[in-house]
Structures are given as C-alpha cells and as structure tokens.
Design a binder for these strands. Sequence first.
DNA 1: AACTAAATTAGAATAATTCTAAAAGAGGGA
DNA 2: TCCCTCTTTTAGAATTATTCTAATTTAGTT
Lengths: 135, 135
Amino acid sequence: MADKTLRDILQAHGLKSTFQRLSILEYLMTHETHPTAEMIHDDLSDISLATIYNTLDKLVDVGIIIVIDTLKDDKRHYDYYGEPHYHIINSNTNEIIDADNFDVAPLFEAARQVSGLNITGFHIEIYGVDPDQAK
Amino acid sequence: MADKTLRDILQAHGLKSTFQRLSILEYLMTHETHPTAEMIHDDLSDISLATIYNTLDKLVDVGIIIVIDTLKDDKRHYDYYGEPHYHIINSNTNEIIDADNFDVAPLFEAARQVSGLNITGFHIEIYGVDPDQAK
DNA sequence: AACTAAATTAGAATAATTCTAAAAGAGGGA
DNA sequence: TCCCTCTTTTAGAATTATTCTAATTTAGTT
C-alpha cells in the first residue's frame, strides 16, 4: 500500500494527511475484519482512542468508510468502502461477508419514486444462517 | 385495534400476554414514528423503562419488530414489521419512510450464492436528500 | 522559518442500555 | 376457583461505548 495512494485518497476527500489518518485508513483497507474502534486501537495503540473515533467519524462523513451497527454486540463496526457493496451477516457466527453481485439501480429508482428524494447511498444487510442449522 | 388480535400476535410468537407487552405492541402498530425506547416511555409512562427495553428486545428476537440504528442520533429506533419492507432515510431531516415497492427475492438469491447461507431476513436503508438541496 | 487553522490527546463526562435482585403477575392444572 | 411455578416487571445501580473539553502539537501554506 503506497503511502502516496493513501494521501491521495484523503486529499481527494478534502482531509489533511496525518500519521494517524494514514495509519487508520491503511488499517481499514488491509483488514477485512470490519473492526470496531477498540479493535483498531488495540492494534494501533500509539494512536489515542479519541483520535480513532474522530478519524473514523471524518472518514464516514466523506464516504471513504461506512458503519455497520446492526450486529448484536452493541458496537459500531467500520468497513472500507472503496466500491459500493452490501453485507451478508451469518447470524450463527456474526461474521460479515462483503458482496457486490447485485445491481442497486432498480432499488434506487424504486426509492426515488416513493420518496421523491435524490438517492445518495445505501446500507444493505442480509441475514442468514448455516444451512445445516435449525435457525 | 382489537385486544384479541394483539394477544394472538404475541401468542403466535410464543410470548405471554401482559398489559405492558400489549401496550407497547399496540403503540408500535399504531405509530409510524419509528420511536426510540425513550419516546415510547414518554407516552407509556406507567411502564418502567427497563420493561420497555426488555419488551423491545423480546419483540425483536421473535421478529415482530425490527431495529433501525443507522441514524445519526445514536439511538435505536423500532419499527413494527408486520410486512417486510425497507427504509428510505431523508438525510436532511432524518425522517424515515417505509417502502415495499421492491422485490427482494433476487437480492436474497445473490446473497445465497455468495455465502451459501439460508437467508432469513434483511435490513435495507436507502439514503437521500431533498432534490433542491445541494447535499 | 513563521503562521494559523486544524488535528491530536488524556482524561473526564455523558447517556443509552444493561444488570440486579426483589415483588408481582400469567397461565396451567387440580 | 385457587394454587403453584415460572416468567415478567420494576427501581435504581452499574456498565460502557462514545463524546466532550481544553491544552498541546502538527500540517500545509506564505
């Protein structure tokens, strides 16, 4: 992961580059674990927890990452959002799978028709269970 | 709203009928406000806040209602889930619109293909802004 | 190199939600 | 109808993820 690229991403969204932001962004881009603020802080322990939260908020605001807060653990999980995608959550394990094999255009159009709004984004979570488990 | 019907709904999901559960369920069925626990407690002030939370958890567990916790206000909102539907959120006002003009079957099939899971449910939030507002 | 607005930080504060343990109630059976 | 047992309700305390504060440091520009 070239440092240059990370700086470019931040700059493209109007964010100053700092050691902390570069580290956190790289962390999110290279981990598929959908971590919480605390999990990031455990691994990047030189960065204060306040900065972890501040930075995550900023990255969410500009759309670089998104929040997943529909898990049962009462914590916010974060996900690098380079390309739009949806989430499949295994209710047996709470594992989150990224997927993009679905065209959201018809859904956007349906939402526009109902609401009259300009659609700007979406959050989709699909829940499932292991096929051999009762529920 | 016949009391009988409310009891039937609870019973069909294996929940005992209590005055508190009947009141909270009726409240959710007759309000389109997607209330928080606190909002429900404000209106049903004879019911303790602990019971509001306990009951909401139970109703979510059996699938009678669902949680919406992707708003910016850091509170959980609850929604009667008589029929499956998705949510359109106006980012200017945080208003939540219920909509069902979209067939989720293709999305379920896509998710099944990717994950191999038995799909059990979904949460969809579509975000939009008023057309005449920049963003 | 200096300047200024923005970012970082430690620690305190907040507040939504959960927990505890005691009292009340629901529903089934006799 | 009256127990009986298990579940539900409750007030208030406890928890904890997240936010706030105010002082320090830093990034990016002149």
